[in-house]
């Protein structure tokens, strides 16, 4: 959703009907402007709002810039519904994991050889004094966070700490209900988003990496490493790295986490025996589900870092209102 239908929309060119304030897509000025070719020299146009008002709105101060309709309403709603679902699914998922904080490979659980286990040791009086994370037989001390963490000041055996789980206390029955309810919302939201992305050509236009994106990937990585982000006209399009990251979560991690989730249901395994088979068994599916969850979490951390480093308010505004400020004249 990076393309503007009908060209750019300089601040100086707000249609009369929009009154004296910025109208952030509420009455879809893009449609009103369809076919308009903007010829105004942006640099010479006077800032429409006084700087003080702009600051109050959290906008960038005056200068050569204009607003660009970056995200359409469907994408914005889907984004925030998705954000809420993923937060609740991750936290309730960690609570579910705490009921048996170990992962295995295969159909069944080989209790002697877990891939990953969060455990605790007790002292000679039976008091928990150490939390460990065991990965493939190697133990790491993770006291206080993984394996053992404090509840009411008392170190207790617990996979993930209570601040990371929903509900806070270990409560498998309730965590499962949260998890399944928001899994439904996540999947319905994803189906709507994918239908929209195909129908509106959002995926083809904005997300599919072009040959040029791939060719420039090396430079893109170097630029990102130096925290140099596209500015000006270039910021209107996702760059190659961004496209790959979004495609990876939307078309790989997303379907994978849903399918591995379904593969854990005994009734669905009867309906679709290939589901657990596809992932090497139910316990493997559970392990992949867990890895996907942490891939999403890793994506979230990088996503937030990039949002902040490339202009938190501009990015946040564009995902809330749709409008993104293009600064400078930096042509491609």
């Amino acid at each position: 959703m990076l393309r503007m239908r009908g060209g750019a929309w300089p601040v100086a060119e707000i249609p009369a009907g929009c009154g004296n304030q910025l109208s952030f897509g509420a009455n879809d000025p893009v449609n009103a402007l369809q076919g308009t070719v903007v010829t105004t020299d942006v640099e010479k146009s006077p800032p429409y709002l006084p700087d003080r008002a702009r600051t109050a709105l959290g906008l960038t101060p005056s200068g050569p810039h204009y607003f660009f309709y970056r995200h359409r309403a469907w994408v914005r709603v889907a984004h925030w519904v998705n954000a809420l679902c993923l937060a609740i699914l991750l936290m309730s998922g960690l609570n579910i994991f705490n009921a048996h904080p170990a992962l295995y490979w295969g159909d069944g659980s080989n209790f002697q050889r877990p891939l990953l286990m969060l455990g605790a040791y007790a002292d000679e009086f039976g008091m928990v004094d150490r939390g460990v994370t065991a990965i493939g037989g190697h133990e790491f001390s993770t006291t206080g966070v993984l394996g053992a963490s404090k509840i009411d000041g008392q170190l207790t055996a617990r996979g993930f700490p209570s601040w990371a789980t929903l509900p806070g206390p270990n409560w498998l029955a309730m965590a499962r209900q949260w998890h399944f309810a928001f899994a439904w919302i996540l999947v319905l939201n994803a189906i709507g988003f994918i239908a929209y992305g195909l129908w509106s050509r959002h995926f083809i236009r904005d997300l599919a990496p072009t040959r040029r994106d791939i060719a420039h990937l090396g430079r893109e990585i170097a630029d990102h490493a130096r925290l140099k982000f596209p500015r000006g006209e270039k910021a209107k399009h996702y760059n190659g790295l961004q496209k790959l990251a979004y495609c990876a979560v939307i078309f790989v991690a997303g379907p994978l986490i849903v399918m591995t989730g379904l593969a854990m249901s005994p009734t669905l395994d009867a309906a679709f025996p290939f589901l657990p088979w596809l992932f090497g068994g139910r316990q493997s599916a559970r392990a992949i589900h867990f890895l996907c969850a942490f891939s999403f979490f890793g994506f979230f951390i990088v996503h937030i870092a990039m949002v902040i480093l490339s202009g938190s308010w501009n990015n946040l505004r564009s995902m809330v209102t749709g409008w993104y400020a293009i600064k400078g004249r930096g042509h491609d």
Binding site: I96, F97, A99, H100, A102, Y104, D107, G108, S109, F111, L172, R176, M264, P266, D269, R282, Q283, R286
Partner: peptide, 12 residues
Amino acid sequence: TRHDCVEGWSCI
């Protein structure tokens, strides 16, 4: 058959 516990583990 595979026995699936609500806790998350399985045994055949």
